[in-house]
Design a protein around this nucleic acid. Structure first.
Lengths: 193, 193
DNA sequence: CTTGTATTGGACCGAACAGTCCTTAATTTT
DNA sequence: AAAATTAAGGACTGTTCGGTCCAATACAAG
């Protein structure tokens, strides 16, 4: 009954997510969010609560989307190829016309996690999740022969997770796509020996 | 001639640095800076210019101090031990009573570098500098036998630089000192094989 | 067509923001 | 001691912040 919403809630959330993704939490003002979503102030507050609530919702939407992507990409064969694609796709937007995005979880590890337990917990979960899926992929790789290293899959996965924020930092610091690819190439040699 | 300054400029800069270091640029207000430095508004503006100028000055002071530390630590013998000490000292404050600090350059790579060329340039310089000093240290280590790996020192250095932001992220995400040490231990195995 | 309910736009709020400016105070030089 | 010079304190600015509130509106149910 009564008047229906004029906007698509999940679409609005997606737009808000991009805004936070691009500029972080503090630097994204409510004005930015209104412009990004196209909502009016009252609609935004009625639908999502305050800025912080909207952020957490957007962050969770981001995390869910990324987790889906990761599972899809890492299912490829052979596993080694899947892992490379996984990393490669995370920096798909580098040096495109689009602004730099990188991984929102890493950005938030730096910006909010130290001062905000709710964010911190999410970041920790994301890192652990990444370690888990990479461990599985590397394990598969060791079986199908695409990952030569005999070290425990978990250790190798931890190494990759450890290096991931480094790639993110390089991307944000303006390194070229070529340089990022080289760094990844170098990183993947750890899977060989 | 005339009235002398009541405060120590470099000391005030140091306090401002800690404030920016702890909370980042956006989240550190002028009020925070006044409280941290103990200056009055007019003194701060007369001495350092605006917030951004003060930030850049503080950032440069930080970078200089860190570069000095790095050189000092990495001069130790044997080189392998020096490298471990180097990484270890970067996270000395983790799990202490002090708040989390980590590396300011990495924090700024995430926060300001994408949108601020002056910051971006500094971050790139810092990463390159880190690669350079680590390359030299690893080279020494290969000569004195403390670094067993036969891979080019530069490649190994790049691997360490790549992993460094990962340690920073772990620290900011609240990982324990033990977990950080384990991650470093794992990382250093790359110098062995 | 009336009634009821939910959405909408925008006026409005106090607080905090970075930054300016002027008066007052302190110290050296003359 | 007086003059000159500069630091320090704090009042003040306009703007923007996140957030609230209300009146107008639009739709569905009866």
């Amino acid at each position: 009954m009564s008047r229906p919403q004029e906007f698509d809630t999940t679409e609005a959330l997606h737009h808000a997510m991009r805004a936070f993704w691009l500029k972080g939490y503090e630097a994204t003002s409510l004005t930015d969010l209104l412009a990004a979503t196209g909502l009016s102030k009252s609609s935004l507050y009625a639908t999502f609560g305050g800025k912080r609530d909207l952020f957490l919702a957007a962050f969770d939407a981001y995390r869910q989307a990324r987790a889906r992507d990761a599972h899809r990409v890492l299912r490829q064969q052979p596993a080694r190829r899947a892992i490379e694609t996984f990393f490669h796709s995370l920096f798909a937007d580098v040096n495109s016309d689009e602004p730099m995005l990188g991984c929102m979880s890493i950005n938030q590890a730096v910006e909010l996690a130290p001062h905000d337990p709710a964010v911190r917990q999410r970041v920790v979960e994301d890192l652990q999740q990444m370690e888990l899926v990479l461990t599985q992929a590397i394990g598969r790789g060791q079986q199908d022969g695409s990952v030569a290293s005999l070290r425990p899959a978990r250790e190798l996965a931890r190494l990759l997770v450890l290096a991931f924020p480094g790639l993110q930092v390089m991307a944000r610091a303006g390194y070229t796509r070529q340089q990022l690819d080289d760094a990844q190439q170098l990183l993947f040699t750890c899977l060989d020996g």
